[in-house]
């Protein structure tokens, strides 16, 4: 669990419940100057991919299971954690995306856009680190 998160929300495992939390997370990231308003494309993509994976692959869309999103500041990086209540998976078993198969691209995109990506040993917590956008003054943040 991230220490002293500035954002912590849970939602049931349904794609319908996800956009509200996603939108709120992006608003908070913009308010705290982690992303530029209007330039949230990659942050939105990574959050959505991670949340969709937690809902569909982790919790198998079981509404009784929850997905938790936490964000905490670590210097110039925002530590984002997505927890699911599934049985976990081995990220090393996810093949890199090719030009034929339909899966595996979400993780590839997260790895590209985020500063760092890590899975816990159980495989049901994805951690990713977002670097603060360059156009905002470092350390500038709102309550």
């Amino acid at each position: 669990m991230a220490s002293n998160p500035f954002f912590s929300r849970e939602f049931p495992s349904s794609l319908e419940a996800m956009p509200e939390v996603l939108g709120h997370a992006l608003t908070v990231l913009a308010d705290r100057h982690w992303i530029d308003p209007g330039h949230e494309f990659s942050a939105r993509l990574c959050l959505e991919e991670a949340m969709v994976n937690a809902v569909t692959h982790g919790n198998k869309c079981n509404h009784a299971r929850r997905v938790r999103v936490e964000m905490a500041e670590e210097g110039d990086l925002c530590h984002i954690s997505i927890f699911d209540e599934g049985h976990g998976f081995n990220p090393d078993c996810v093949p890199p995306p090719d030009t034929v198969h339909t899966g595996g691209r979400g993780l590839c995109l997260i790895k590209h856009y985020m500063e760092r990506v890590r899975f816990d040993d159980a495989g049901n917590r994805l951690e990713m680190w977002l670097r603060r956008c360059h156009t905002q003054p470092a350390g500038g943040q709102s309550a």
């Binding site: 494309f41 939105r44 993509l45 959505e48 991919e49 969709v52 034929v100 198969h101 339909t102 899966g103 691209r105 979400g106 590839c108 995109l109």
Partner: peptide
């Protein structure tokens, strides 16, 4: 905006 799910549909 598009997510990776769109890419799967395009394939």
């Amino acid at each position: 905006y598009l997510s990776s799910a769109v890419l799967s549909e395009l394939i």
